[in-house]
């Protein structure tokens, strides 16, 4: 069942268990592939962020490495003009709906988007596309953390943590299309929901959507007390 096989990723010979997912095989072997939505421990791949494209010899088009299982003799390229182009567009699309203010962001230097930009030489600035994001929508109701939906990339990790890991069920996806959002019942405040404030969502969020209040830079924090 878990037979060992060998495959080649970017000219490097790699061993892996048959049926393992390519994204994690590459990451385990020190080969970086940009990714946001996939979780190693989750039962099912969601394949929603569309950033982990790779080329596989014999397949006509780039495929997402999170949905691709490895097999004997597979030859993989994590970079190609087509992969780079898809990543650039996908990344820019996410940025176009992400409130960009890295310097003031609580997750500055620990953000997956920054990591992808650094690894792939992409700008953290919109050049081709129009900015879609609206103003900040910050829920400061929980005791030690905040939720800023204008920074959310809809990877769904927090929902997995909330529903599958800690089994609370306070947050989920609501609405659809461009209106799709991570929210509580009736899109209310976290503190008014069944949220236990366990911070599992904060730990798993790859960007600055869920963040600890203490990480927010003091000078920019406006305290509301009333």
């Amino acid at each position: 069942m878990s037979k060992l096989i060998t495959l080649i990723i970017d000219d490097k010979q790699v061993e892996a268990k048959e049926g393992e997912r390519l994204l994690w095989v590459a990451l385990d072997n020190g080969i970086y592939i940009p990714h946001l939505c996939d979780l190693r421990m989750a039962r099912r791949t969601v394949a929603s962020c569309r950033l982990c494209f790779v080329e596989i010899e014999g397949l006509p088009n780039p495929v997402t490495s999170c949905t691709q299982t490895v097999s004997e003799g597979m030859v993989v390229r994590t970079r190609s003009p087509r992969v780079d182009r898809l990543l650039r567009t996908g990344f820019e699309l996410l940025l176009s709906n992400h409130r960009l203010h890295c310097a003031k962001c609580a997750k500055n230097k620990r953000c997956e988007l920054q990591k992808i930009a650094k690894e792939r030489g992409l700008k953290l600035k919109l050049t081709r596309l129009r900015q879609l994001v609206k103003e900040a929508q910050i829920d400061e109701s929980p005791g030690v953390f905040c939720y800023d939906s204008s920074k959310c990339v809809l990877c769904g990790r927090c929902i997995w943590a909330d529903q599958e890991q800690v089994k609370v069920g306070a947050i989920g996806f609501i609405r659809r299309g461009i209106g799709r959002k991570v929210a509580t019942f009736e899109d209310g405040l976290l503190a008014d929901s069944i949220c236990t404030q366990c911070e599992a969502c904060v730990k798993i969020c790859p960007v600055g959507a869920f963040y600890l209040k203490e990480d927010e830079r003091k000078p920019y924090k406006i305290k509301k007390e009333c």
């Binding site: 529903q163 609370v168 069920g169 306070a170 947050i171 989920g172 996806f173 609501i174 609405r175 659809r176 929210a183 509580t184 019942f185 009736e186 899109d187 929901s193 069944i194």
Partner: peptide, 20 residues
């Protein structure tokens, strides 16, 4: 809320379907 309770689902799940 009542449907969520009866089906033993998180309320937000029902809200998610209702708004989808």
């Amino acid at each position: 809320r009542q449907v969520a309770e009866a089906l033993q689902l998180p309320e937000v799940e029902v809200f998610g379907v209702g708004t989808f």
